[in-house]
Nucleic acid binder design. Structure first.
Length: 428
RNA sequence: GCGGUAUUGGUGAAGUUUGGUUAACACACCGGAUUGUGGUUCCGGCACGCGUGGGUUCGAGUCCCACAUACCGCCCCA
């Protein structure tokens, strides 16, 4: 084995690729109903696009980014997530302009890159589907995005979802909560896990997310962000909750839920699922939230945004584990058996003629014996098997067999070449 | 970046404990069973090599080292 694919990458082979196409098709169809349209942005951006938006201290920027200097000495990074690039494009193309209807609703799907240790469903090159909606502060938009996410999973055949929501409030709420959290945790500094001791001053909210048992007992009694919301932030969150209820969407409020990226504020949410395929207990399959201020961060006007992203590898793993039926698409209408070298040209002509009549058709290219060709026709589940041999060539006919019924007929070659539908209507 | 487990053909794999002639078995695939008809049956074929590179040994798939990759856990997260 001379060459292997780079660590953390995967070949998506025929068979598997059908699952991907199905997922993408379903997503496009759902997004269309909500009037989200596709955007395609570069797989790489200037490093600063991600370092500015994700936060300089975030793990993504400090250790997971695939960045390099190109031949023009530009500091480039492969995109580790989708939002920053979309926001950059939003600003650069002035999609905040008056001629663009607000909210501007868009989606993307494609490769993302993170330099990290691969595990099942977690690769260095992976794929995300994400949506973003810009230009409205209304809680109704948060709820539309959440509702669309739920709708999406329903169409994927996943409906045993748990929706967890929380709010990070506005900047004022967040600052006062951050201080309160530090004040609470500081006296217990020596009792915290090593990781959390580092987190305490860098990003105290992350302590809430710790899986370390030592930390969990402090987290249980830690102050809640919900007690530090400004009236405006509180009102926003209340509206989100009541609109979710109005739509009959169940949710749980998890006040310890946080985000790895710095740009989120107000509503954040996660769709979680309890499936062995993704590990023990509830794991997140889709995460999103509001990011007011991000557009400004990248040089645009004061335009708010809300969106979500989901990992396609994990989604497909989940769908396969949950027994979702993917449509099978390798239907073969006709297999053409050619007997003898003299039949070669005619066989090729018939196959092409059937294809031009919009039938899927194939033939043997290994010069195999008739018996082997018939076996292949069967294995490929061909609906019809056509046979051309010495006798047919002489008589300008072709033998057509319905593989399901076993009925067969000898038809004029010219009919099959131009009116295959009529020919088979006589033998079904 | 740290720790653990694993790596045998197209596939699933036995064999590694106690290093010793021909790498089991099965599936898939290919060919054949009197000349041009398919899911069954029967027969036959199918690893000069055991992730890669070194080392120990009279001898290594089996022991040692390094590297690569996969999986699990940590970190983080989709």
């Amino acid at each position: 084995m001379r060459y292997q694919r780079p660590k953390g990458t995967a070949d998506i082979l025929p068979g598997e690729s059908q699952h991907w196409q199905y997922v993408e098709a379903v997503a496009r169809q759902v997004f269309k109903k909500y009037r989200f349209e596709e955007i395609r942005t570069p797989l790489f951006e200037n490093f600063e696009v991600f370092s500015r938006t994700s936060g300089d201290t975030s793990d993504i920027v400090t250790k997971e980014m695939y960045d390099f200097k190109d031949k023009g000495d530009r500091h480039i990074s492969l995109r580790p997530e989708g939002t920053a690039g979309v926001v950059r494009a939003f600003v650069e193309n002035k999609l905040y302009g008056p001629e663009v209807q607000k909210p501007f609703k868009t989606y993307y799907m494609g490769q993302m890159y993170r330099y990290e240790r691969p595990q099942s469903g977690r690769q260095r090159e992976f794929h995300q589907i994400g949506v973003e909606a810009f230009g409205s502060d209304e809680p109704a938009l948060d709820v539309e995005v959440i509702a669309m996410g739920r709708d999406l999973f329903k169409h994927f055949g996943i409906d045993n979802l748990r929706l967890a929501i929380n709010t990070l409030g506005d900047k004022e709420s967040r600052d006062s909560y951050r201080q309160a959290l530090i004040d609470y945790l500081e006296p217990h500094y020596d009792e915290l896990s090593e990781d959390s001791q580092v987190r305490l001053h860098k990003n105290p909210l992350r302590v809430l997310d710790s899986k370390d048992e030592k930390d969990k007992k402090f987290v249980a009694d830690a102050p809640s962000i919900l007690d530090y919301l400004t009236p405006a932030a509180q009102a926003h969150f209340d509206q989100v909750k009541s609109l979710l209820t109005a739509l009959g969407i169940d949710y749980v409020v998890d006040s310890t839920m946080v985000r790895g990226l710095d740009y989120y504020n107000h509503t954040i949410f996660e769709f979680m699922v309890d499936s062995k395929a993704l590990g023990h207990g509830y794991t997140t399959v889709c995460a999103g939230g509001r990011y007011n201020g991000l557009v400004e961060e990248l040089g645009g006007p004061e335009v708010s945004g809300v969106g979500f992203g989901l990992g396609m590898e994990r989604l497909i793993l989940l769908m396969e584990a949950e027994g979702v039926q993917f449509p099978e698409e390798h239907h073969l209408d006709a297999y053409v058996v050619g007997i003898g070298d003299e039949a070669n040209a005619t066989t090729l002509q018939v196959v092409q003629a059937l294809r031009s009549q919009d039938y899927s058709a194939d033939r043997d290219y290994l010069a195999r014996k008739p018996k082997a060709q018939f076996k292949t026709a069967d294995r490929l589940s061909a609906a019809y098997t056509l046979t051309v041999g010495e006798a047919e060539l002489a008589a300008k006919t072709i033998h057509v067999k319905n593989m399901a019924s076993g009925n067969e007929v000898t038809a004029p070659l010219a009919d099959v070449m131009t009116h295959f539908a009529e020919v088979i209507s006589n033998i079904d």
